[in-house]
Each structure stands twice: as C-alpha cells, then as structure tokens.
Design a protein around this nucleic acid. Structure first.
Lengths: 155, 155
DNA sequence: CAATTATTGGACATAAATGTCCACTGCTTC
DNA sequence: GAAGCAGTGGACATTTATGTCCAATAATTG
C-alpha cells in the first residue's frame, strides 16, 4: 500500500494542474476546477482551505469569487504543495517506524532510505506547478464561453 | 501521509531483521520475534501467514514449531518481502491516480516519478534481510537460555 | 438593506487500514 | 489416543482516511 501522499494532496495537484487551463490569470473556482479535474468537490474543498491557510491560495468570497494563486505557478514547487497539505514532516518519519531512529541511531534502512529520499526531494523541489500544467493535455476547444459571470471590481 | 508500505510490511521487516538474532539457523516463533521486535503479535501473525504463502517462510506446527526461512537471509531482498506482503503492483499505480496514465499517455508526474522509482527499486533489490540484520543493534547478552523446549526430531 | 454567490468550518457518514479474539487444524510427545 | 503446542483463518473491534452535508460568514450586486 505505497502512497507518496494522501488523496487530498493528489487532488490538490490534479486541481492546480488544470487550474491554469481554466483561467489564464491564476483565478479559478472550486466547483469548476473539481469538475475539470474529475475529483470529488466536497472533499477537495478541504484541501483548498489548507492551501489557502498555507498562503499559496487566496480565497475570494462572494459573486465572481474563487481562489487566486498567490505566486506564479512556476514559483510553486510540488514539494510546496505537498508540505502545505501533508505537513512539513511527511518524509521525516523512520521507514521502519522506530521512534529512536536518527542519524545517531540509524535503523537498518536509514541510509538506504535517506539516499532515495534525497533524490525524491530534489525532484519534487525542481518540478513546479507550471511544469505540471505544461505537460497536462490541452483542452480541445474553449472550455467555457468566458467567465460565467465576469467580475467587475476585482482583479 | 507518505507511506512506503503498510504496517504489516513494516512489522515483517522488523521481525525478520531480529529473527536472525533469536536463532542462528533461521528458525523462530511468532511470539518470540514479535516480543523482540516490539510489534503487535496478533496482527503480525497475519503477515507471517502471507510470507509463508509466498514461500519465504515455512510454517511448522506443533511443539517446537514456528517458522523457518526457506532461503538464506542474504538471498531475500527487501523488495521480495514488500512484494510478498503488499502484492507485486504496489509501486505500479499512477502517483496522480489517473487510470489512463502509462508510457503512452503519461501524467505530468510520470517521468519524474519513474526516475525516482527506479532508484528506489534498485536499492530495495540490492538490500537483503542479511544486510538489515547486520545493521541491527546486537543484543547485549544471551536473549534466552536455549530454546524454551528444544526440538528433537526437527531440523 | 435584501438577495445572491462562494468560501468556511464543523458535524456527520462511509470505507479502508489496523488490531484483537477464538475455535480449529496439524504436529509432536508421551 | 490423549494432551498440549504453534500456526490458520474467519469474525469482530477500533482507528484512521476519505467523503458528504449544511448552517454560517463574507463579499458583490441591485
């Protein structure tokens, strides 16, 4: 039962990957992006809240609201998202579940796992949301006819 | 919520790591090894069953019974154990949870994850149970005064 | 101010992982 | 064959992860 991250985090990455597709200026609504990504809306909203509280998204309430990316997509790494959703210590625990495991008292798997983890973290720090969006399949035609209700005072 | 493998698999590795300590000839009993490894016995027994069915352990019932390693410890890799407990496809699923993801239609994270996974699998194939046992802290003195009931016809 | 819209956060529901228990089978010994 | 030992497998209990719902909040529009 290997898992790189939780479902919530998986949904966050999928949502943000296609958020760029929906709107060029980094704005999107939960409902739209969840439908686009094919992920459960009610559950994914929780993750958006976490991302908002972590400062990667700004929540805008009311008509024409939604979420706004606080940084350009190429300035948000995958590790940023993972840490925001999972906590900063996701990759810190001992693989064998030994509480005393550390550099002083390494578990038998410590060194092995450390080297693999280094490679993993390097990759997750290099790749950004922009990279994901660029690789994502482009939509065939225009997704929707303009914003469903164009904001007027905002932006 | 990163997880390299399930609790059952974690317990298996911890148990087998100290199985060598308990008995030189690759024999051990569930009760002893669970106490030694500090893992829940009832639950871990299920994992032993899986390992027995996978052919890595041979179960011996009756007095003086227990489990016997079917191969020398340096011939069983960590990946062997993981596959036996988790199934052969633990590391095969798409990290973003996309069903259509594959080499033909790679998800945005496909290449990134593939390279990390290759490194991970290489390590898990190189490291054996013997390596884990060698790295495990040696017990200070004799664990127990001989077998609690030395088998006579067996071995 | 009233109505509408979109996020918020807590309560609740379900599913999956983890953990426990016990009657049973097979084996060994006497 | 009787007794006891150790693994087996199914049923059950608990915990965690995942998923849903709804009243409340904040912002926009008229």
């Amino acid at each position: 039962m290997f898992k790189l991250y939780s479902k919530g985090c998986e949904y966050a990455l999928r949502a943000l990957t296609c958020a760029a597709v929906l709107n060029e200026n980094g704005r999107f609504q939960a409902k739209d992006v969840c439908a686009e990504a094919g992920i459960p809306e009610s559950f994914s909203r929780k993750t958006f809240q976490a991302l908002a509280q972590a400062g990667f998204l700004k929540a805008l309430r009311g008509p024409g609201g939604g979420y706004m990316l606080m940084r350009p997509m190429d300035k948000i790494t995958l590790l940023d998202v993972i840490h925001a959703v999972e906590g900063d210590d996701t990759f810190d625990n001992c693989v064998l579940g030994l509480p005393m495991c550390g550099s002083k008292q390494p578990c038998p798997l410590h060194i092995t796992w450390k080297s693999v983890k280094t490679e993993l973290l390097t990759q997750l720090k290099q790749q950004t949301l922009q990279d994901l969006a660029d690789l994502a399949p482009r939509p065939k035609g225009p997704r929707r006819k303009g914003s469903p209700r164009p904001p007027q005072k905002r932006q």
